[in-house]
């Protein structure tokens, strides 16, 4: 009752939140997809006479310590970070969903073994594990993606497994088994579709997570090679100038990381409201 009473004043704010999130996500997508091919500008164009310029009309975000335009660098950096985030989140979700679904639907000792591995892995800090994985490869985009994916599937596996466990004991799964459905069919046709909304939600929330992970690795100098602009790299290379009182080379990449993160979280929140079963009880017959 309290829920429905509160829903009315909250509805407008929720709409605004969703609209803002959608606008930001669309703007970000347009920026990273359209600007680089259309604007025939070279993000690597060095102009030593113009180094460390504060924001101006010519360079809205200012320039860095070798005179490169920071707006352009940020857009390219976001492009790389977003790519890493999306691919890594997708990979982690696929791995996590597959492992969680298998563990949950088989149960017994396979489940116990998998969940012990999951517990062990999650007791090691993500970043440490990520650094360990990156260190095994040459710096580049793929090692970073692998590092993020291999550390982030764990939470998805947990979510999917518990959803599968709760669905597995429902009579409709019994009915499917009795109707002759094979193990694979039960998982693919009846269990997975039931958990996909949850897994999708986890995936959306994981994109910013993965972006931050990538930035952290790059900031530590372990992520992408220095010439490839990622948001983490940009902050890392601007560290020195921050001490000299030049705020813009760190602020703008930072904002580029934070704003899409908030927008994606807003979208994920709206989605969670949608799949919330309580909303379906509007008609109580």
């Amino acid at each position: 009752m309290a829920d429905t009473a509160l829903a009315h004043p909250g509805r407008t704010t929720r709409r605004v939140r969703v609209a803002t999130s959608v606008t930001v996500v669309v703007a970000v997508a347009l920026a990273v997809l359209i600007v680089p091919p259309l604007a025939q500008l070279d993000q690597q164009a060095v102009d030593l006479s113009n180094k460390l310029h504060p924001p101006s009309w010519a360079h809205p975000f200012g320039t860095d310590d070798v005179g490169r335009d920071l707006l352009l660098r940020c857009v390219y950096g976001l492009r790389v970070s977003l790519l890493v985030g999306l691919v890594a989140a997708l990979t982690a979700t696929v791995i996590g969903t597959a492992i969680g679904a298998l563990a949950g639907s088989f149960g017994g000792w396979p489940d116990r073994v998998v969940m012990r591995i999951v517990d062990t892995l999650s007791s090691i800090p993500h970043l440490l594990l990520g650094i360990f994985i990156v260190a095994m490869f040459r710096p580049g985009v793929w090692p970073v993606i692998i590092s993020v994916a291999l550390t982030h599937w764990i939470s998805t596996a947990r979510i999917v497994r518990s959803e599968v466990l709760s669905l597995r004991s429902r009579p409709f799964i019994d009915a499917a088994v009795s109707g002759g459905a094979s193990r694979v069919r039960v998982i693919v046709r009846h269990l997975l579709p039931g958990v996909l909304p949850q897994a999708g939600l986890a995936a959306v929330l994981m994109v910013p997570h993965a972006m931050w992970h990538e930035s952290a690795l790059s900031f530590l100098g372990l992520g992408l090679p220095a010439h490839q602009a990622s948001l983490g790299n940009l902050v890392q290379s601007a560290r020195g100038s921050l001490l000299a009182g030049d705020w813009w080379p760190t602020l703008f990449p930072g904002l580029f990381l934070i704003i899409p993160t908030l927008a994606l979280a807003g979208l994920a929140g709206a989605w969670r409201d949608r799949i919330n079963p309580r909303r379906k009880s509007e008609l109580m017959l």
């Binding site: 429905t4 009315h8 009880s281 509007e282 109580m284």
Partner: peptide, 11 residues
């Protein structure tokens, strides 16, 4: 019964 208890949903 829900109407008598004031427990109907908002719609």
């Amino acid at each position: 019964a829900s109407a008598l208890l004031g427990l109907l949903p908002a719609n």
